[in-house]
Amino acid sequence: MAMTIEGGGGGTLSAIYQSAKKLLLKARDGIERVERLESSTSNGGLDSPELSFAVKKDISQIQSLCAEMDRLWRSIASKPQRDLWKRKVEQVAEEAESLKESLDRYFARNQRRMKEAQERAELLGRANGESSHVLRIFDEEAQAMQSVQNSKRMLEDSLSTGSAILTKYSEQRERLKRAQRKALDVLNTVGLSNSVLRLIERRNRVDTWIKYFGMGVTIVILYFFISWRG
Rank of each mutant, 00 (worst) to 15 (best):
G10Q: 11
V186I: 02
N188D: 09
S42R: 13
A164W: 02
N204W: 06
I221D: 04
G11S: 12
L197N: 06
S48I: 01
S60E: 06
R33C: 02
M1L: 13
Q63G: 07
H133K: 15
D157F: 06
A27I: 03
A183L: 07
E35T: 00
A54Q: 07
R120E: 15
L155W: 02
A96W: 01
K22F: 08
L222F: 09
L187P: 01
R36W: 09
S19Y: 04
R33F: 03
G129D: 11
S48F: 03
T189R: 13
L166E: 04
R229F: 04
I226V: 07
Y223R: 05
S40D: 15
A15H: 08
I165W: 03
R28V: 01
S60N: 14
Q18M: 10
R105P: 02
I31N: 00
D157V: 08
K22W: 10
D83A: 13
K100A: 14
L187Q: 10
R175G: 03
E6G: 09
S195F: 05
M1I: 14
V92D: 02
N188Q: 14
D207G: 07
K22G: 15
E119T: 08
Q146K: 11
E38Y: 02
N194V: 10
K56G: 11
G7L: 01
G191E: 05
Q111D: 08
V89I: 11
K79Y: 07
L184F: 04
L99S: 05
L135Y: 04
W228C: 05
R87F: 06
S75T: 08
A2M: 06
K152W: 10
